[in-house]
Design a binder for these strands. Sequence first.
DNA 1: GTGAATGTTAACAG
DNA 2: CCTGTTAACATTCA
Length: 243
Amino acid sequence: MPEGPSIIILKEQLVPFKNKKVLKAYGYADIDFNLINNQKITDFISHGKHTFICFKNYFLSIHLMMFGTYRINTRKENNPVLSLEFKTGEINFYTSQVKLFEGKPKDFFSWETDVMSEEWNPKYVENIINTTKDTKVCDALLNQDIFTGVGNIIKNEALFNSKIHPESLTHSLPTKKIKVLITETEKYSLNFLKWKKEGLLSQKWKVYEKKICSRCNISLIKAKLGKGKRSTYFCANCQILYK
DNA sequence: GTGAATGTTAACAG
DNA sequence: CCTGTTAACATTCA
């Protein structure tokens, strides 16, 4: 269940554990739990689809991948990949990718490409897109080095709202259209967060998992497009192909 | 039972 | 060596 905005919600739920000491850390993650035990959490930081749990000298990176889940102060039947027990409660992650880094997140990552970050820099992203070649827009959107945190739902909805065909080539898009794409991606990501919190996310979809175009009333196309062959929904009539 | 799903990367083939 | 494709990981639901 990940995509940048969902990870923001996760981070907000973790906040009560900030400055709390981990009494016991365990799970099937391939990390040295001794480095975490009895350490105080200094911060929780989101970076696209990653959540960083920070300690003084180390930080954990959690990625929910496609099927990851978590529970706060409750448990699931399955074995957790990472469980952190505190005096005041517990955090449990399941089927996620967990890594341990030495140092600070800032030493490894930057936030200019992260739509959900305060450091989000649309101009910077525009410059990156201008350097791409032989790249389909649907792939550019899922490229975490260009749009950190954007996933398949945001991709489909942002393309529909931008009226751009997913197989358009980035270097064929007029500058104006690139700006529209970036703005619409930002706008939809913020709405994703808002609607998910309100429980309205799936009702608000205009193309994702839809059959009919809400603008033209014709049938939408569903195809596995791009490098990752991800499900892509689009209207062949109102989403223009730039090639 | 089958296939697909908000994801990514290692391994493999050519 | 580079590039594109496939497999792998692991879960839940229709």
